[in-house]
Simulated scan of single mutants.
Amino acid sequence: MRTVNPDQHEKKRRELLRAALRRFAAEGVQASIASICAEAGVSPGHLYHYFPSKEAILEGLFQLVLDEAAAHLSGDVQDARDLPALVADLYSGKGPSLLFDLLAESQRNAAIADRLRRHSAEMKQLLASAIVRGQAAGLVDDTLPAETLATMLLAVLDGSKAIRLRDPAVDRGHAREMLLALVSRVLKRRSADEMTGEMRRPR
Rank of each mutant, 00 (worst) to 15 (best):
M1G: 15
R2E: 02
V4Y: 09
V4G: 06
V4H: 03
P6C: 10
D7N: 07
H9T: 12
E10D: 07
K12Y: 01
K12M: 09
K12P: 01
R14S: 13
R22E: 12
R22G: 12
F24W: 06
A26Q: 15
V29A: 11
Q30M: 13
Q30P: 08
A31Y: 13
A31D: 11
S32M: 13
I33P: 00
I33Q: 11
S35Q: 15
I36W: 05
A38V: 11
E39T: 11
E39R: 14
G41T: 14
V42K: 02
S43W: 06
L47G: 00
H49S: 13
H49D: 12
Y50C: 09
Y50D: 12
E55T: 15
A56C: 07
I57D: 06
I57Y: 06
L58C: 10
L61S: 04
L61R: 01
F62M: 05
F62K: 00
F62S: 07
Q63S: 03
Q63K: 09
L66T: 01
L66A: 04
L66F: 07
E68A: 08
E68H: 08
E68V: 05
A70H: 04
A71W: 03
A71N: 06
H72Y: 14
L73V: 09
D76P: 10
V77F: 07
Q78G: 15
D79S: 12
D79W: 01
R81L: 10
R81G: 13
P84V: 05
P84I: 09
L86D: 01
A88N: 00
L90W: 10
L90F: 11
L90C: 05
L90H: 02
Y91S: 02
G93A: 14
G93Y: 08
P96A: 10
S97C: 00
L99D: 11
L102V: 14
L102K: 11
L103Q: 15
E105H: 14
R108M: 06
A111G: 14
D114W: 11
L116Y: 05
R118Q: 15
R118K: 12
H119I: 00
S120W: 00
A121N: 11
A121R: 14
M123L: 14
K124V: 04
R133E: 13
G134N: 07
G134Q: 05
Q135N: 02
A136G: 09
V140I: 15
V140T: 11
D141Y: 01
D142N: 07
D142Y: 03
P145K: 04
A146H: 06
A146S: 15
T148C: 08
L149Y: 04
A150V: 04
M152P: 09
L153H: 02
L157K: 05
S160T: 06
R164M: 02
D171I: 08
D171C: 04
R172V: 11
G173W: 00
H174R: 09
H174M: 14
A175N: 01
M178H: 04
M178L: 13
L179E: 07
L180H: 03
A181I: 09
L182V: 08
L182R: 12
L182M: 13
L182N: 02
V183R: 02
V183Y: 00
V186P: 02
K188P: 00
R189A: 15
R189G: 09
R190E: 03
A192E: 12
A192K: 01
D193H: 06
M195P: 02
G197Y: 00
